[in-house]
Design a protein around this nucleic acid. Sequence first.
DNA 1: CCTATATTCAACACATCGGTTGATCAAGGG
DNA 2: CCCTTGATCAACCGATGTGTTGAATATAGG
Lengths: 112, 112
Amino acid sequence: MSVAEDQLDRAFAALGDPVRRAMIARLSRGPATVNELAEPFPITKQAVSRHIQVLEAAGLITRTRDGQRRPCHLVPAALEALTSWIDEYRLETERRFRRLDAVLQSVKEQEQ
Amino acid sequence: MSVAEDQLDRAFAALGDPVRRAMIARLSRGPATVNELAEPFPITKQAVSRHIQVLEAAGLITRTRDGQRRPCHLVPAALEALTSWIDEYRLETERRFRRLDAVLQSVKEQEQ
DNA sequence: CCTATATTCAACACATCGGTTGATCAAGGG
DNA sequence: CCCTTGATCAACCGATGTGTTGAATATAGG
Protein backbone atom coordinates (compact mmCIF):
# COMPACT_ATOMS: atom_id res chain seq x y z
CA MET A 1 0.00 0.00 0.00
CA SER A 2 1.25 3.43 -0.89
CA VAL A 3 2.30 6.04 1.65
CA ALA A 4 -0.52 8.31 0.55
CA GLU A 5 -3.09 5.56 1.10
CA ASP A 6 -1.60 4.93 4.50
CA GLN A 7 -2.00 8.59 5.44
CA LEU A 8 -5.63 8.48 4.33
CA ASP A 9 -6.14 5.45 6.59
CA ARG A 10 -4.69 7.26 9.54
CA ALA A 11 -6.42 10.56 8.86
CA PHE A 12 -9.93 9.16 8.39
CA ALA A 13 -9.53 6.82 11.33
CA ALA A 14 -8.28 9.71 13.45
CA LEU A 15 -11.45 11.68 12.69
CA GLY A 16 -13.55 8.68 13.67
CA ASP A 17 -13.08 9.56 17.34
CA PRO A 18 -15.23 12.34 18.83
CA VAL A 19 -12.49 13.48 21.21
CA ARG A 20 -10.09 13.97 18.31
CA ARG A 21 -12.72 15.75 16.22
CA ALA A 22 -13.33 18.14 19.10
CA MET A 23 -9.58 18.78 19.24
CA ILE A 24 -9.58 19.58 15.54
CA ALA A 25 -12.45 22.00 16.09
CA ARG A 26 -10.54 23.66 18.92
CA LEU A 27 -7.34 23.91 16.89
CA SER A 28 -9.15 25.59 14.01
CA ARG A 29 -9.41 28.61 16.33
CA GLY A 30 -5.68 28.65 17.03
CA PRO A 31 -2.76 26.63 18.42
CA ALA A 32 -3.12 24.88 21.77
CA THR A 33 -1.00 22.86 24.17
CA VAL A 34 -1.71 19.41 25.57
CA ASN A 35 -3.06 20.93 28.76
CA GLU A 36 -5.32 23.31 26.91
CA LEU A 37 -6.64 20.56 24.69
CA ALA A 38 -7.19 18.30 27.68
CA GLU A 39 -9.24 20.84 29.61
CA PRO A 40 -12.70 20.06 28.16
CA PHE A 41 -12.40 16.29 28.58
CA PRO A 42 -12.85 14.04 31.61
CA ILE A 43 -9.81 11.93 30.71
CA THR A 44 -6.17 11.97 31.78
CA LYS A 45 -3.49 14.11 30.17
CA GLN A 46 -1.75 10.94 29.09
CA ALA A 47 -4.79 9.89 27.09
CA VAL A 48 -4.95 13.34 25.51
CA SER A 49 -1.25 13.16 24.71
CA ARG A 50 -1.85 9.95 22.80
CA HIS A 51 -4.79 11.39 20.89
CA ILE A 52 -2.45 14.16 19.84
CA GLN A 53 0.13 11.65 18.69
CA VAL A 54 -2.53 9.97 16.59
CA LEU A 55 -3.46 13.27 14.95
CA GLU A 56 0.19 14.05 14.32
CA ALA A 57 0.89 10.61 12.82
CA ALA A 58 -2.09 11.23 10.52
CA GLY A 59 -0.50 14.48 9.38
CA LEU A 60 -3.51 16.47 10.56
CA ILE A 61 -1.47 18.55 13.00
CA THR A 62 2.14 19.60 13.53
CA ARG A 63 3.85 20.57 16.76
CA THR A 64 6.29 23.31 17.65
CA ARG A 65 8.23 24.01 20.81
CA ASP A 66 7.69 26.86 23.24
CA GLY A 67 9.77 26.13 26.31
CA GLN A 68 8.19 23.21 28.12
CA ARG A 69 5.12 23.44 25.97
CA ARG A 70 4.49 21.67 22.69
CA PRO A 71 1.76 23.65 20.93
CA CYS A 72 -0.30 21.88 18.27
CA HIS A 73 -1.22 23.48 14.95
CA LEU A 74 -3.83 22.33 12.49
CA VAL A 75 -2.62 21.51 8.94
CA PRO A 76 -5.36 22.67 6.57
CA ALA A 77 -3.70 20.95 3.59
CA ALA A 78 -4.21 17.60 5.29
CA LEU A 79 -7.91 18.32 5.71
CA GLU A 80 -8.06 19.39 2.11
CA ALA A 81 -6.62 16.04 1.02
CA LEU A 82 -9.53 14.30 2.72
CA THR A 83 -12.21 16.45 1.14
CA SER A 84 -10.55 15.93 -2.26
CA TRP A 85 -10.69 12.17 -1.82
CA ILE A 86 -14.33 12.25 -0.80
CA ASP A 87 -15.38 14.73 -3.47
CA GLU A 88 -13.89 12.66 -6.26
CA TYR A 89 -16.37 9.88 -5.57
CA ARG A 90 -19.27 12.03 -4.44
CA LEU A 91 -19.15 14.10 -7.62
CA GLU A 92 -18.85 11.02 -9.82
CA THR A 93 -21.93 9.57 -8.10
CA GLU A 94 -23.90 12.77 -8.54
CA ARG A 95 -22.97 12.92 -12.24
CA ARG A 96 -24.18 9.35 -12.60
CA PHE A 97 -27.47 10.20 -10.89
CA ARG A 98 -28.00 13.13 -13.23
CA ARG A 99 -27.39 10.94 -16.28
CA LEU A 100 -29.88 8.42 -14.91
CA ASP A 101 -32.44 11.14 -14.31
CA ALA A 102 -32.01 12.30 -17.89
CA VAL A 103 -32.61 8.78 -19.19
CA LEU A 104 -35.72 8.34 -17.07
CA GLN A 105 -37.00 11.70 -18.25
CA SER A 106 -36.57 10.82 -21.90
CA VAL A 107 -38.29 7.47 -21.40
CA LYS A 108 -41.18 9.28 -19.80
CA GLU A 109 -41.41 11.62 -22.75
CA GLN A 110 -41.34 8.70 -25.17
CA GLU A 111 -44.33 7.12 -23.45
CA GLN A 112 -46.46 10.20 -23.80
CA MET B 1 -23.72 12.26 22.29
CA SER B 2 -26.03 13.31 19.49
CA VAL B 3 -27.15 11.04 16.70
CA ALA B 4 -25.44 13.23 14.14
CA GLU B 5 -22.14 13.02 16.00
CA ASP B 6 -22.55 9.28 16.16
CA GLN B 7 -23.02 9.09 12.40
CA LEU B 8 -19.85 11.16 11.90
CA ASP B 9 -17.99 8.69 14.13
CA ARG B 10 -19.18 5.78 12.08
CA ALA B 11 -18.66 7.43 8.71
CA PHE B 12 -15.11 8.65 9.34
CA ALA B 13 -14.13 5.39 10.98
CA ALA B 14 -15.63 3.49 8.04
CA LEU B 15 -13.42 5.44 5.61
CA GLY B 16 -10.39 4.62 7.73
CA ASP B 17 -10.21 1.17 6.18
CA PRO B 18 -8.64 0.80 2.72
CA VAL B 19 -10.96 -2.04 1.74
CA ARG B 20 -14.01 0.08 2.48
CA ARG B 21 -12.55 3.09 0.67
CA ALA B 22 -11.98 0.91 -2.38
CA MET B 23 -15.60 -0.19 -2.15
CA ILE B 24 -16.72 3.44 -2.06
CA ALA B 25 -14.61 4.11 -5.14
CA ARG B 26 -16.18 1.14 -6.90
CA LEU B 27 -19.71 2.18 -5.94
CA SER B 28 -19.18 5.68 -7.29
CA ARG B 29 -19.25 4.05 -10.73
CA GLY B 30 -22.57 2.31 -10.06
CA PRO B 31 -24.36 -0.16 -7.80
CA ALA B 32 -22.73 -3.49 -6.99
CA THR B 33 -23.57 -6.68 -5.14
CA VAL B 34 -21.62 -8.34 -2.36
CA ASN B 35 -20.03 -10.74 -4.84
CA GLU B 36 -19.03 -7.95 -7.18
CA LEU B 37 -17.56 -5.90 -4.37
CA ALA B 38 -15.70 -8.93 -3.05
CA GLU B 39 -14.05 -9.76 -6.36
CA PRO B 40 -10.93 -7.52 -6.07
CA PHE B 41 -10.09 -8.60 -2.53
CA PRO B 42 -8.30 -11.66 -1.16
CA ILE B 43 -10.77 -12.00 1.72
CA THR B 44 -13.90 -14.06 2.24
CA LYS B 45 -17.38 -12.99 1.19
CA GLN B 46 -18.36 -12.98 4.84
CA ALA B 47 -15.73 -10.36 5.60
CA VAL B 48 -16.92 -8.29 2.65
CA SER B 49 -20.50 -8.63 3.84
CA ARG B 50 -19.49 -7.17 7.17
CA HIS B 51 -17.59 -4.29 5.57
CA ILE B 52 -20.80 -3.53 3.73
CA GLN B 53 -22.77 -3.59 6.96
CA VAL B 54 -20.30 -1.10 8.42
CA LEU B 55 -20.76 1.24 5.45
CA GLU B 56 -24.53 0.90 5.71
CA ALA B 57 -24.55 1.60 9.46
CA ALA B 58 -22.49 4.71 8.71
CA GLY B 59 -25.17 5.85 6.25
CA LEU B 60 -22.66 5.90 3.41
CA ILE B 61 -24.57 3.33 1.36
CA THR B 62 -28.09 1.96 1.07
CA ARG B 63 -29.19 -1.43 -0.17
CA THR B 64 -32.00 -2.57 -2.39
CA ARG B 65 -33.26 -6.00 -3.33
CA ASP B 66 -32.94 -7.68 -6.71
CA GLY B 67 -33.95 -11.30 -6.26
CA GLN B 68 -31.24 -13.01 -4.28
CA ARG B 69 -28.95 -10.05 -4.67
CA ARG B 70 -28.68 -7.05 -2.39
CA PRO B 71 -27.12 -4.30 -4.49
CA CYS B 72 -25.32 -1.47 -2.70
CA HIS B 73 -25.72 2.17 -3.68
CA LEU B 74 -23.56 5.09 -2.62
CA VAL B 75 -25.29 7.97 -0.79
CA PRO B 76 -23.63 11.17 -1.97
CA ALA B 77 -25.37 13.25 0.70
CA ALA B 78 -23.55 11.27 3.38
CA LEU B 79 -20.22 12.04 1.74
CA GLU B 80 -21.21 15.67 1.51
CA ALA B 81 -21.87 15.77 5.27
CA LEU B 82 -18.26 14.71 5.85
CA THR B 83 -16.74 17.32 3.55
CA SER B 84 -18.93 19.96 5.20
CA TRP B 85 -17.64 19.02 8.62
CA ILE B 86 -14.03 19.10 7.47
CA ASP B 87 -14.38 22.31 5.48
CA GLU B 88 -15.83 24.18 8.42
CA TYR B 89 -12.57 23.82 10.31
CA ARG B 90 -10.23 23.91 7.35
CA LEU B 91 -11.66 27.21 6.15
CA GLU B 92 -11.57 28.72 9.63
CA THR B 93 -7.90 27.75 9.89
CA GLU B 94 -7.11 29.25 6.50
CA ARG B 95 -8.86 32.49 7.41
CA ARG B 96 -6.81 32.64 10.60
CA PHE B 97 -3.60 32.10 8.63
CA ARG B 98 -4.49 34.92 6.27
CA ARG B 99 -5.17 37.28 9.18
CA LEU B 100 -1.81 36.33 10.67
CA ASP B 101 -0.08 36.95 7.36
CA ALA B 102 -1.68 40.38 7.19
CA VAL B 103 -0.43 41.24 10.67
CA LEU B 104 3.09 40.09 9.89
CA GLN B 105 3.03 42.11 6.70
CA SER B 106 1.98 45.31 8.49
CA VAL B 107 4.65 44.80 11.16
CA LYS B 108 7.22 44.46 8.40
CA GLU B 109 6.03 47.67 6.81
CA GLN B 110 6.19 49.48 10.17
CA GLU B 111 9.84 48.49 10.55
CA GLN B 112 10.83 49.96 7.25
C1' DC C 1 -39.29 -30.41 -5.15
C1' DC C 2 -34.35 -30.12 -5.21
C1' DT C 3 -30.26 -27.92 -5.87
C1' DA C 4 -27.28 -24.13 -6.71
C1' DT C 5 -26.29 -19.36 -5.71
C1' DA C 6 -26.24 -15.03 -2.84
C1' DT C 7 -25.97 -13.56 1.51
C1' DT C 8 -25.90 -13.61 6.40
C1' DC C 9 -25.34 -15.45 11.21
C1' DA C 10 -22.50 -17.45 14.99
C1' DA C 11 -18.45 -18.49 17.28
C1' DC C 12 -13.84 -18.01 17.59
C1' DA C 13 -8.76 -15.96 17.24
C1' DC C 14 -5.93 -12.18 17.25
C1' DA C 15 -4.64 -7.29 16.86
C1' DT C 16 -5.55 -2.67 17.79
C1' DC C 17 -7.65 1.05 20.45
C1' DG C 18 -8.61 3.96 24.24
C1' DG C 19 -8.45 4.32 28.78
C1' DT C 20 -5.96 3.83 33.40
C1' DT C 21 -1.84 4.29 36.91
C1' DG C 22 2.94 5.04 38.02
C1' DA C 23 7.44 6.36 36.63
C1' DT C 24 10.37 9.32 33.84
C1' DC C 25 12.19 13.18 31.22
C1' DA C 26 12.85 18.17 30.19
C1' DA C 27 12.46 23.02 30.90
C1' DG C 28 11.57 27.10 34.05
C1' DG C 29 11.54 29.70 38.16
C1' DG C 30 12.53 30.63 42.94
C1' DC D 1 20.32 23.64 43.17
C1' DC D 2 15.69 22.05 44.04
C1' DC D 3 11.00 21.87 43.00
C1' DT D 4 7.17 22.56 40.03
C1' DT D 5 5.07 22.15 35.69
C1' DG D 6 4.34 20.17 30.94
C1' DA D 7 4.61 16.23 28.55
C1' DT D 8 5.73 11.49 27.57
C1' DC D 9 6.84 6.50 28.30
C1' DA D 10 5.64 1.77 29.91
C1' DA D 11 2.73 -1.73 31.42
C1' DC D 12 -1.67 -3.22 31.88
C1' DC D 13 -6.92 -3.92 31.02
C1' DG D 14 -11.34 -4.27 28.78
C1' DA D 15 -13.72 -3.26 24.48
C1' DT D 16 -13.88 -3.21 19.64
C1' DG D 17 -12.47 -4.47 14.92
C1' DT D 18 -11.23 -7.60 11.27
C1' DG D 19 -10.43 -11.79 9.76
C1' DT D 20 -11.46 -16.93 9.73
C1' DT D 21 -14.58 -21.37 9.36
C1' DG D 22 -18.93 -23.65 9.46
C1' DA D 23 -23.86 -23.48 9.55
C1' DA D 24 -28.13 -21.24 8.23
C1' DT D 25 -31.41 -18.65 5.35
C1' DA D 26 -33.63 -17.20 1.12
C1' DT D 27 -34.38 -16.90 -3.67
C1' DA D 28 -33.77 -18.74 -8.57
C1' DG D 29 -34.38 -22.03 -11.67
C1' DG D 30 -34.50 -26.68 -13.79
